[in-house]
């Protein structure tokens, strides 16, 4: 038996190399396979299309026709403007909530189940382990949570308006929504590295999301250094408003926070004890 084994091994090309990329390709392929070779991505795309585009349809076609008991319209004013505002105000929050639920188990689940220990007993770097989680899930966010629902949303707007909606503001607003979701993805992954139980991961991520508006009311300056104002900024961008320089700061700070979270996750996971 063992002679046969050795003979087989001689035919195989050994993987050489060291450093942070060790095992990266294999881990990324595995993470991607988990999403794209199953129905998970279709379910996610369908779910977010239903929620987000359903909301847009509601705001464009149903609510404007509704009136209060005294005959006043429920949603007065410019329907298109109100619908875009509502869509880009709510979708960052809904998607952030979604990614927190999806990502809360990514790292801590593997730490607790023992699969992380198993993977890292192979020639794979800890950097690669975390980076592939971030990369694969970022791709999932981009495609199933942003691109597909927003492509359909754009089509709906086109149908409603009867002409093409300006593409640049729409794309910029979609990009800002993505940044908002990316912040919560990286925050949740970092919390998964730092925490030892799921409740704590959820508490950190949901606390940041839900406690944000409360905190920024108490300390308004916090809005500039956090993503808490991004939903309003998304709506302004989508409507084609020119952003005052002050409102660029939350976008930059959200990006910086996300990079800091990635750095902390990589650094702490390097020291993680199994």
């Amino acid at each position: 038996m063992m002679t046969e084994v050795t003979q087989t091994q001689e035919k195989l090309n050994q993987i050489e190399g060291h450093g942070w990329r060790l095992g990266l390709g294999n881990l990324l392929a595995k993470e991607n396979r988990t999403w794209w070779r199953s129905k998970r991505w279709i379910i996610q795309a369908a779910l977010w299309t239903f929620i987000l585009d359903g909301l847009l349809v509601l705001l464009l076609f149903i609510i404007p026709r509704m009136v209060t008991t005294d005959g006043q319209p429920v949603m007065p004013g410019n329907t298109l403007q109100s619908a875009i505002q509502g869509f880009f105000n709510l979708s960052p929050l809904a998607l952030a909530l979604g990614i927190i639920i999806l990502a809360q188990d990514i790292v801590i689940g593997e730490k607790q189940s023992g699969t992380a220990e198993w993977v890292l007993s192979k020639p794979a770097s800890r950097y690669a382990f975390i980076l592939t989680k971030i990369t694969a899930n970022t791709l999932v966010v981009l495609i199933t949570m942003i691109t597909i629902p927003n492509l359909i949303a754009y089509t709906i707007l086109w149908i409603f308006k009867g002409s093409v909606y300006p593409i640049i503001p729409f794309l910029s607003a979609s990009g800002t929504v993505f940044l908002h979701v990316f912040f919560y993805l990286t925050l949740t992954i970092m919390a998964g590295v730092l925490a030892s139980n799921r409740s704590l991961v959820l508490a950190i991520s949901l606390g940041t999301l839900l406690g944000g508006s409360f905190l920024s009311n108490i300390v308004p300056a916090l809005s500039l250094a956090t993503p808490w104002m991004l939903p309003e900024i998304c709506a302004l961008i989508a409507l084609g408003e020119v952003l005052p320089p002050l409102l660029i700061i939350p976008i930059i700070s959200t990006l910086i926070w996300s990079l800091v979270f990635i750095f902390i996750a990589l650094w702490k996971f390097q020291k993680h004890e199994f």
Binding site: N13, I15, P123
Partner: peptide, 8 residues
Amino acid sequence: ARFFFSGP
């Protein structure tokens, strides 16, 4: 296996 071998 893919941690050790690239192919064939």
